[in-house]
Simulated scan of single mutants.
Amino acid sequence: MTGTHSSHSREEEAQKNMGGGWTTFPFIIVAVAGLTLASSGIRANLIVYLIQEFNIKSITATQISNVLNGSTSLFPFIAAVVADSFFGSFPVALVSSCVDLLGTVIFALTASIKSLRPEECMNKGSRLCEAPSRVQYGVLYTALTLAAIGFGGMRFTTATLGANQFDNPEHQAIFFNWFLFTWYVVSVAGFTGIVYMEVNVSWSVGFWICAASILIGVIVFLVGYRYYRPEKPQGSALGDLARVLVASVRKWKSQLSSTTNNYYSGLVPVSAVPGKRLRY
């Protein structure tokens, strides 16, 4: 028992020295909650906002909303490659959060400054309604683009950063459970609470609440930096996949070996089987 207790103590002390652990949990979760609340609050009612405040036709507004939603699903893929290959999860998540904050602030300004929107039209959808100018479209698209890039960039890099704070797979699983729980609960709050503020109070108030939630999330995320475990980029899985494809093309005429030991069965580590390092 004494030996086991000493072993656990050494492991805890080692983890404390190298950072990470449950100390980092609240910082990451608050950041996720702040950005998720803002994203859901903007995306949930975007079509209505574009129709009512920008005099954009419903078909065009729906297309803009679909592009925004599609972009937020694409950018996590790009951000993951950049984080794994070059910078690590924390810098990518932090920069993405700041980009998201900038986009949300600009978007909130479109609801606060009348010159950034066309003149109000009483007969929505009519051809007589004034269409947005190029400048107004430019500001709108800039805000949505930055918000999509920012939210997509931090979406799963924060999840990776959080999981990397733990060595125990069970602790990683618990973290992911809380991460997803926070994600969905806060999304529901955004789809209901923020939308209620936009419809019953004002668009400006709703969007500025979104901007404030991101700002709080970024500040808390940055405050926790001293506790995060340092990360080193280890290369993207896409690079390994590319090597496999290149090796397959270059060796497609090679004769297959009849020796069982030359094939990896998954029962032993690859490093334990001689000659199994990929060459091309």
Rank of each mutant, 00 (worst) to 15 (best):
L146N: 08
A173S: 06
A111N: 13
G88C: 12
T142H: 11
F181V: 10
E119I: 13
T142C: 15
F86Y: 14
L109A: 12
D84P: 07
V188G: 10
S96W: 00
L144R: 09
T157I: 06
G153P: 00
F151Y: 02
T104Q: 07
Y141F: 14
N168G: 03
T104S: 13
I78K: 15
V95D: 06
A147H: 07
G150L: 06
L102D: 12
G138Q: 13
M154D: 00
L161A: 05
T160K: 10
G88P: 08
H171W: 02
T142L: 14
T145P: 08
N168V: 03
F181R: 08
A163P: 06
R117P: 01
A173Y: 00
V99S: 09
I78W: 08
L116A: 11
N123L: 13
S187G: 12
M122H: 12
A83H: 08
A143P: 13
W178F: 10
G88F: 08
A83E: 12
N177W: 06
Q136Y: 00
F176M: 07
I113R: 12
L180M: 09
N123G: 05
V135L: 06
D100F: 13
A148N: 01
F107Y: 11
K124A: 11
G153N: 04
L161S: 03
T160P: 05
S112Y: 12
N168F: 04
L102P: 15
M122E: 13
W178E: 02
